[in-house]
Simulated assay, not measured.
Amino acid sequence: MLKLIGLGILSGLFFSATFVLNEAMSAAGGHWLWSASLRYGFVIIFLTLFLLMRKGVSYLKELTRLLLEYKSFWVITGTIGFGFF
């Protein structure tokens, strides 16, 4: 239970850090597209590292194969989950 709470706090920390970075970029005159892309970049990097540490390279290869095989499903659900969120 404490591990789950810790993971929730850690994920909240990284998610909140992107808002701080977004505001800093906005104040410096940066384009909103760069700050929005930063959040997705963080998600991809940390999720990939987490999966590599927990499941290994073979799992990541299989996951990549499935993502490419069902590309339209992931585009639609990703648009709803990340785009509309």
Rank of each mutant, 00 (worst) to 15 (best):
A17I: 14
G29N: 12
W34F: 15
E69D: 11
L2F: 10
R39C: 07
L2R: 14
I45Q: 05
S26D: 04
S16V: 13
E69N: 05
G56T: 04
N22Q: 13
L52D: 05
G78Q: 05
T18K: 07
G56Y: 06
E62F: 01
L47W: 09
T18W: 10
Y70D: 11
I80M: 12
R65T: 13
G83D: 02
S11A: 14
I45R: 00
W32N: 07
L13F: 15
K55W: 03
I9F: 11
G8D: 05
E23Q: 13
F42C: 13
K71W: 11
K61S: 09
M25H: 06
G81K: 00
L47K: 00
A24T: 09
S16M: 12
L68C: 01
A27G: 00
S26F: 15
L21P: 04
T79E: 00
F42P: 02
L47D: 02
F46Y: 10
H31Y: 03
I9K: 03
Y59L: 01
M1R: 04
L60E: 14
L10A: 09
G41I: 02
G78C: 02
L67W: 11
L47Y: 07
N22R: 13
A27M: 01
S72E: 08
E23H: 12
L49H: 06
F42K: 00
F42T: 01
F15I: 15
V43R: 02
F14H: 02
F84H: 01
L52S: 02
G81Y: 10
L2M: 12
E69T: 15
F85A: 10
F14C: 11
K3R: 15
Y40D: 13
L21H: 02
M25K: 06
S72P: 00
R65A: 15
M25L: 15
G30Q: 09
G41D: 04
L7W: 03
F85K: 01
R65G: 07
K3L: 08
E23I: 06
S37N: 14
Y59P: 05
L51A: 08
W34A: 14
T79P: 00
F14G: 08
I45M: 11
S58L: 12
F42M: 14
F82D: 04
T77A: 15
F85N: 04
G6N: 12
M25A: 11
W32P: 15
A27S: 04
F15M: 09
S35C: 03
T77E: 06
L4M: 11
F85C: 04
L51W: 07
T77K: 03
Y59G: 03
W74M: 03
F84G: 08
G81E: 08
L63Y: 04
F14D: 03
L7K: 12
F19Q: 13
Y59S: 11
N22G: 11
L67M: 14
M1N: 10
L10F: 12
S26P: 01
F82I: 14
T18M: 08
T64I: 04
G78F: 00
L68Y: 12
G41C: 07
L7G: 06
M1L: 10
G81V: 14
M1F: 08
L60I: 09
T48K: 09
F15P: 05
F73R: 03
L7M: 10
S37P: 00
R54G: 00
S72D: 06
L33M: 13
V75K: 01
L52T: 03
G83E: 08
L68P: 01
F50D: 00
F85I: 12
I80Y: 14
F50L: 13
E23A: 15
L60F: 08
S58K: 09
S58T: 10
T64P: 00
S26I: 09
I76W: 02
